[in-house]
Computed example of a mutant assay.
Amino acid sequence: MSPVTVITGGSRGIGAATARRLAHAGHHVAFSYRRDRAAADKVLAELHATGVRAVAVPADTRDPDQVTALFDAAADLGPVTGLVNNAGVTSPIGPFVDLDPDDLRHVVDVNLVGYVLAAQQAARRMSTGGAIVSVSSVAATLGSPGEYVHYAAVKAATDTLTVGLAKELAPRGIRVNAVAPGIIRTEIHALSGQPDRPDRAAARIPLGRPGEPDEVAAAIAWLLGPDASYTTGTVLRVGGGL
Rank of each mutant, 00 (worst) to 15 (best):
Q121E: 14
D98Y: 10
M126D: 08
L112K: 09
G211M: 08
T68E: 14
L161R: 00
F31T: 10
S2D: 13
S192K: 10
G78M: 02
R21D: 00
L104M: 11
L104K: 03
T231A: 14
P206S: 11
L104G: 08
G193M: 05
A157S: 03
H106K: 06
K42R: 14
R21M: 10
A45L: 03
E215H: 00
T68R: 14
G82Y: 01
K167V: 09
A17F: 03
A75Q: 09
G94K: 09
A38S: 10
G15V: 02
G182Q: 04
P181T: 05
G10A: 05
A156P: 08
I184M: 15
P198H: 08
P206K: 11
A54Q: 07
G173H: 04
F31N: 02
T81D: 13
G208S: 03
L112H: 12
P226T: 12
T186F: 01
A180F: 14
P101D: 13
A49F: 05
A25F: 00
P195H: 14
V52A: 06
D72G: 06
T81W: 00
V84S: 01
A139E: 06
S137R: 02
H189N: 11
T232I: 10
P101R: 06
R62H: 11
T81P: 09
S91C: 11
A217P: 01
D98Q: 13
R34A: 13
T160F: 12
G146T: 14
Y33G: 07
R200P: 12
G241I: 02
A17W: 00
T61V: 03
D76H: 10
D102F: 15
R175H: 14
D227G: 13
L70K: 04
T186V: 14
D41W: 01
V57P: 04
Q66N: 09
R185V: 02
V97Y: 12
S192Q: 15
G182V: 09
